[in-house]
C-alpha cells in the first residue's frame, strides 16, 4: 500500500523504529555511538597527521635543526628560522609561570585546607568566571591597563633601580613587552592551576592529615611536610597544564607583546611568539612558496609541545586519582 499523502509518508518513516525490535535498536545505537566515540578519540592523531602532511613540503627540503634554530625569518627570501619565535613564546610563557605559580598554589592551598565552606562557595565561582572570560577581552585589558602600567611606572622604576641586571635592561619604551604578555597570561592560567592543584591537594587522604595534626603539627606544617609531599606529582601536573595553556595562547598575547621578531634578552623587550606568527601571517601566505608549509610546521611544533605537557600531566592526574 503506497502512502498517498505527505503525512502518511512521514508516519510510515516514523514507524520504522517501532518495528525494529528494542534490542536491535540498542545494538544499532551502540554501534553508532561507538563509531562517533572512536572517531573523536582518533582526533588528536588526525590533527597531528594533517598538520604533518601540510608541513611536509618544508620538512623535506629544510633540516629540522635549521628550522628550529635558524634565526632569520624572511619568507620572500625563503628563510624560515623559527628560533626568534620559539624564544618569544618561551620567554613569555616562562615569565607568566613565574608570576602565576606561587599565588595560584597559595590560593589552592587556602581553598583546600583553610577556607571555610562559605568562603569557598563564594570564591570558586568567581575563579571559574575568570576562566570564562574570552582571551580577546584579556587582550583588551592588557592593552588598557597592563601595557600603560609597564610603560609609565614599572619600566621607569626598573630602569632606575635594577638596570644593572641584564634581565631588566631594555630600550623598549612602548610597554608592549614580554612582561606585559607574562602578566596577562598569568591571570589567564590562574584558574587552571588553582582548580587542578586544589583538587589534588583535596584528594590527599584525610587520615594522613589527621595523623600529622594529631601529633601537634600545625596545619601549615602538615601541608608542608605531608600533604604537599603526597600531592607533589599532581601539583606539578597542574603547573604543566597551566604551562601548556600559556604556551598555546594566541590572541591575548599577540595584543600585548609587541610582535618584534627578535630574540628577547630582557623581560621589558618585545617578543614575537609562534602563535602570533601564525595568526598574523596565515591567509596572506598563499603566493609565497613554502610559506604555508612553514606556518603549519609552526602549528605542528606548537601542538607537539602542548601535547607532551598535556599528556604527561593528564596521565599523572589519572594515576593519582586511581590511587586515592
Amino acid at each position: 500500500m503506497a502512502p498517498s499523502t505527505p503525512t502518511e509518508f512521514i508516519e510510515k518513516w516514523l514507524a520504522i523504529p517501532k518495528r525494529l525490535s528494542r534490542q536491535t535498536l540498542d545494538r544499532l545505537a551502540k554501534k553508532w555511538m561507538g563509531f562517533q566515540t572512536v572517531a573523536v578519540g582518533m582526533l588528536v592523531p588526525l590533527i597531528a597527521l594533517a598538520l604533518l602532511l601540510r608541513a611536509q613540503p618544508i620538512l623535506t627540503v629544510r633540516p629540522l635543526g635549521e628550522l628550529l634554530f635558524g634565526t632569520t625569518w624572511h619568507p620572500i627570501k625563503q628563510a624560515f628560522g623559527f628560533y626568534p619565535f620559539i624564544m618569544g613564546t618561551l620567554w613569555v610563557t616562562i615569565t607568566s609561570m613565574i608570576i602565576a605559580v606561587p599565588p595560584s598554589l597559595m590560593v589552592a592551598i587556602y581553598l583546600a585546607e583553610y577556607a571555610p565552606q562559605r568562603v569557598r562557595a563564594l570564591i570558586k565561582p568567581l575563579i571559574d568566571l575568570l576562566a570564562g572570560i574570552p582571551s580577546v577581552v584579556y587582550g583588551v585589558w592588557g592593552v588598557l591597563t597592563v601595557v600603560p602600567l609597564i610603560r609609565n611606572y614599572v619600566a621607569p622604576t626598573i630602569d632606575r633601580w635594577l638596570s644593572f641586571v641584564p634581565l631588566f635592561q631594555s630600550d623598549n619604551p612602548t610597554g608592549y613587552s614580554v612582561l606585559a604578555g607574562g602578566v596577562v597570561l598569568a591571570v589567564m592560567v590562574f584558574p587552571i592551576i588553582i582548580a587542578v592543584a586544589e583538587e589534588v591537594i583535596h584528594a590527599v587522604p584525610r587520615d594522613l592529615r589527621e595523623a600529622s595534626l594529631a601529633m601537634g603539627a600545625t596545619r601549615w606544617q602538615t601541608m608542608k611536610y605531608v600533604t604537599l609531599r603526597k600531592a607533589v606529582a599532581g601539583v606539578i601536573a597542574a603547573i604543566g597544564l597551566g604551562f601548556s595553556r600559556a604556551f598555546g595562547e594566541t590572541m591575548a598575547v599577540m595584543m600585548v607583546v609587541g610582535n618584534v621578531p627578535k630574540v628577547p634578552s630582557s623581560i621589558l623587550d618585545s617578543a614575537y611568539p609562534l602563535t602570533a606568527l601564525i595568526a598574523n601571517n596565515y591567509g596572506e601566505m598563499m603566493s609565497v612558496p613554502l610559506y604555508d608549509a612553514a606556518l603549519l610546521g609552526a602549528a605542528l611544533f606548537l601542538m607537539v609541545v602542548v601535547l607532551i605537557f598535556n599528556i604527561a600531566s593528564r596521565l599523572t592526574l589519572v594515576r593519582l586519582v586511581q590511587h586515592s
Binding site: V40, I47, L241, S244, G248, M303, N310, I311, R314, L315
Partner: peptide, 23 residues
C-alpha cells in the same frame, strides 16, 4: 583512553584548531 583523549583535546590551542580546520 577516550576520556584522556578528550582532556588532551581540551588543551590543544585554538590556533591549532584553526589551522587544522583550515586544512
Amino acid at each position: 583512553v577516550v576520556r584522556l583523549a578528550l582532556d588532551v583535546l581540551w588543551g590543544i590551542p585554538s590556533i591549532v584548531y584553526g589551522a587544522f580546520a583550515f586544512t
